[in-house]
Design a protein around this nucleic acid. Structure first.
Lengths: 190, 190
DNA sequence: CATGTCTATGTCAGAAACTGACATCACTAT
DNA sequence: ATAGTGATGTCAGTTTCTGACATAGACATG
């Protein structure tokens, strides 16, 4: 038993999610989030570096990054980098499958606010950096690794957006494969 | 004669650039920028939506976006999309050539502060959207256009970073072509 | 059992980023 | 002349975020 209700951080995340959904990010103050979670505003800022960060908890983002990097690092050495990366993207995408409604709500919140889109972009940038390191460890040159990593993340974002918008319930890994195939077609040139 | 010194906006941009260079973005207040420019803090916020925006004036960003889009739209219809895009990227990159020192200083400021990197990413995202529209007007499917546009911007960013870091004074268009060639190699698969 | 340390939180004051409402004053058109 | 326009100043207020210090339960140690 602690002095306070357990999992203050989780309560803050849920309160923020609800309030952002109801009235939008801009029309929600940190004080309101804290109040709904039953803590102080100051406590909010001890858990999250800033107001946006509450939507990007490390459990989610870091975990996915590890899946991505792990799958790429573990892919058979004979695989071309781009195909090792494909395996990584599918691995990172798989966990979403069961949380589609939630993912959609979250995407809606983020899409509605430029500030949040900025944050999302830089989070994906971190994935790209991690992926780049991993690819270099697979023997790729720094230049090729950077390019591959950036393009891979672009493919992930596009596949994710398609998955969110998709009305036919196609599964995420499949959309990754399709996007990647389209990438190969598009870059093949004339 | 107006009541005030001319070009308050430009003075604010220059003052901000200097101060950010000298002491960094975080250690500079808007009040200080305004003071150096000889205006009020309130005036700053009438010219720029927020403190970061002063580093991303529309004259720069929008102009380049028009070069990019214009070159792609004007590229010969027989060109493959990816090659039309290559022409656009070179066109957008060309103006930098003569302002390399300035570009480098600016890049240093941005690289030093996550908040500014976020803003830069979203600005490039706008380029991507504009490019996507243009590609669709060239007859590309929405899906292929999005993919091509995102990848193109990734190539631009990478080429730009290489150009900034480059010690051999290679020119920007050339770096674009090299990066694009590398992209084709990397996506070709095994 | 007493005592001390650790950790998560509360309290408070304050800086800095931003916003809305209203005033001012040169310039411009009628 | 007079009225209107546009860029700025003034000022009060909200919101985000930070630093310093206090508090209370959990836990270990003697």
């Amino acid at each position: 038993m602690t002095r306070w209700e357990a999992d203050g951080r989780g309560r803050l995340e849920r309160a923020a999610f609800e309030l952002f959904s109801e009235r939008g990010f801009d029309n929600t103050t940190v004080a309101e989030i804290a109040q709904r979670a039953g803590v102080t505003e100051r406590t909010f800022f001890r858990h999250f570096a800033d107001k946006r960060e509450v939507l990007f908890p490390p459990e989610g983002s870091l975990h996915l990054q590890e899946l991505l990097v792990g799958a790429v690092a573990g892919a058979h050495a004979s695989l071309a980098p781009i195909d090792a990366v494909a395996a990584g993207l599918e691995a990172a995408g798989a966990p979403f499958q069961e949380h589609r409604d939630n993912a959609r709500r979250r995407a809606a919140i983020i899409a509605a606010t430029p500030e949040l889109r900025e944050r999302e972009l830089i989070k994906l940038g971190a994935w790209s950096t991690a992926l780049c390191d991993t690819l270099q460890r697979r023997g790729l040159s720094a230049a090729a690794a950077r390019l591959t990593a950036e393009v891979a993340i672009a493919v992930f974002r596009i596949a994710f957006d398609r998955w969110i918008e998709d009305t036919n319930d196609r599964d995420f890994p499949q959309l990754i494969r399709e996007s990647l195939a389209q990438l190969k077609a598009v870059t093949a040139g004339a």
